[in-house]
Structure formats: C-alpha cells, structure tokens
C-alpha cells in the first residue's frame, strides 16, 4: 500500500497548495489555544475550516484537525467545542493528545476517527494498544525519538496505524512532556500551543553579529552570512564553564526522504511533514518532493535526489533518531 503523505496547512491558502501539490491528507487547526501551532496570523476560523475541508474532499484529499494541546482546568469546553466543530465541519479525523479529551471524543463523537497526537508521547506498543482499546484510537503519530528498528518493533505488536515525521522542524524532546519553553517565556506548546512564542523572540544586530533572544535570554549569536536559526532552548548555543556548544541539538531540521524504503518496510502507514507555521511555497515544494519520492518507491524507481535542504532551519538537515548514531 502507498504510504500516505500528511501535509501541514497553517492557512486556507496553504491547504489549497497542499491539495494541489498532491497531499493525500492535510492537517490543520483552529485559530486558538486548542492546537499546538497557535502562532500569530495562522490557523482556521470555523467557516474557513468548513470551506477548506469541502475543498480538500472535492479533490480527493482528507483533512485531519489537530486539537492536541491539554485542556486547562475549568476551560474544557473550549476543547470540547473544537472537537464538535471539527466533526460538524466534516473532518476525516481529529488528532488528540489529552486522555480526557480522547474520552470525550470517544463518547460524544464515536463516529469521528481519532488519531493520537505526537504530543501524547506514545513510544511503545503497550501504551499505543491501551489508547486503541480505551478510546478507539486508529492511528498514532510517533515521537521523533525512535529509531527505524524501534518503529518496526512497535508495528509488529500493534494494529494501530503509525504515522512518522519525515521532514521539518525537529523536536528532539519527548513531546507533550517538554516544558523548556515555559522556563524562558511562561508559555509552552502543551498548554498554550506555542513553543518559543514569537511574542518573546527578539533579533538584534550587534556589531557584525545577529543575536537571537528568547524571553530576554540570548540563545544564538551568529556572524554575518551564517544561517540564522529560530531561538529555541533545545537548539541553543550556550556557554558552560569554559565550553561553548549546543547542549541538546544543533539548529537543524529533519529530512528522512532517503529513509522512505526503510520506513515502508518497518510498516509505517503515513509520512508526516512538519510546518504549519510555514508558507504555501514551502508546503507546495515539500509535498511535491515527497509525493514524487513515494510514487517512485511504489513504482520501484530510484528515489529522486533531495532538493529541500534550503528550506531547513539553519539550512542543515539530519535523519534525527531514525539512524541511531544521532543519539
């Protein structure tokens, strides 16, 4: 079976670009704190979601609605409404992380397909099977900390479909459990839908250097002409004692396009592209590239050479944890 390309859309224009470029499926979210890409100027109103889903369906593509932050106590109705509205808009599935919200969706919207978000950090077959039995989860988005061998081991022990990230911003943490952003800004992807929010980011030209700050802390300082990364703590360059370096990871993006045969053989159902905060140009280029790669794989042809390096953060890419040497 052809692996499904699951493509990001931060705006209705990006959704149309994704569909046009050949995405089998598009994922997006409402313009509020219910999704983990709650960035300025992004996401969909209720009316835009309904129109976007109708457009995708009319061209044979599916739409998944990400409602993957964790509801605040006393404000659960915001998240419940998002699930109800996604259902009413005709979504093909919702992507959820919170156990309570999964229970709500399973009970009140039982015919709405449920996917488990990467934010749930489900990284072994036992926990994935638990989500399937308890809440009828049909697909899990795996965290970006697993090797190809580990993904194969999970698929051998579960009937739940697996979706893996193949391109885009590389979160190196157990997602849904990382609060690094909170320490510098008070806001985290888990509760507020934003990691290293732009409201707390500042770039200043200092002499020949570009300094990137998050919440007042200098995360990067790069010389003129060097690639400029976005200041996230996990990819920051720090001084500690007499050493200077990246503590967790360099400013790189994931690109697993050359690992598609191994991922298929490991039993992966869907290939996820990160980047709801990116432009329609990015969406179009990345989807076209991966669609060509997946089609070539199915036809037994050689995979096309990658052309996506310049779209990567820091203009550099890695295969992340998929090849074990990364850890």
């Amino acid at each position: 079976m052809v692996m499904e390309i699951v493509c990001p859309a931060g705006t209705p224009a990006a959704l149309r670009a994704a569909v046009k470029a050949g995405a089998h499926t598009v994922y997006c979210g409402f313009a509020d704190e219910t999704n983990a890409r709650n960035f300025p100027g992004l996401n969909f109103s209720r009316a835009e979601m309904t129109e976007g889903i109708a457009f995708a369906h009319s061209h044979g593509s599916k739409v998944l609605v990400a409602i993957n932050t964790f509801p605040r106590a006393g404000a659960e109705t915001i998240w419940h409404s998002a699930v109800s509205d996604a259902h009413a808009a005709g979504a093909d599935a919702v992507i959820l992380a919170d156990v309570g919200l999964l229970a709500y969706a399973a009970e009140d919207h039982s015919d709405l397909r449920r996917h488990l978000s990467v934010q749930a950090a489900a990284a072994n077959a036992d926990v994935i099977n638990f989500y399937a039995e308890a809440f009828g989860v049909k697909r899990v988005v795996l965290p970006r900390v697993l090797s190809v061998q580990e993904i194969a081991a999970i698929n051998a022990d579960t009937d739940v479909e697996t979706e893996v990230f193949v391109f885009g911003g590389l979160c190196v943490m157990a997602e849904g459990r990382c609060s690094l952003s909170s320490y510098a800004t008070g806001l985290s992807p888990n509760m507020n839908g934003v990691c290293s929010p732009a409201t707390h980011v500042e770039y200043t030209q200092e002499g020949g250097d570009l300094a990137a700050r998050l919440g007042g802390y200098t995360i990067h300082r790069v010389a003129d002409g060097e690639p400029a990364p976005y200041p996230t703590l996990c990819k920051g360059c720090f001084h500690a004692g007499k050493k200077t370096g990246h503590v967790f990871e360099d400013a790189v993006s994931l690109n697993a396009e050359q690992l598609l045969p191994q991922l298929r053989d490991a039993g992966v159902t869907a290939l996820k592209i990160e980047g709801r905060q990116r432009s329609r140009s990015y969406v179009s280029q990345v989807v076209k590239n991966f669609r060509a790669a997946v089609d070539a794989l199915e036809a037994g042809r050689t995979l096309p050479e990658g052309m996506l390096a310049r779209l990567a953060e820091g203009q550099a890419s890695t295969t992340g944890a998929y090849r074990k040497t990364w850890r």
């Binding site: 960035f39 100027g41 992004l42 732009a198 409201t199 200043t204 030209q205």
Partner: peptide, 23 residues
C-alpha cells in the same frame, strides 16, 4: 534562515503580517 530576510522589532507582528500576506 539564509539571512536574505532580516526581521527586527516585534517578531510576532512581523510573523502575523507574513502569514496574512501568504494567505
């Protein structure tokens, strides 16, 4: 990333404008 574009000041406002124009 390639430094062909430089943003200064209110980064969130600049991102909002970029996203609105893209859409």
């Amino acid at each position: 990333f390639s430094r062909d574009l430089v943003i200064e000041g209110d980064t969130a406002a600049a991102l909002a404008l970029r996203n609105a124009i893209d859409d």
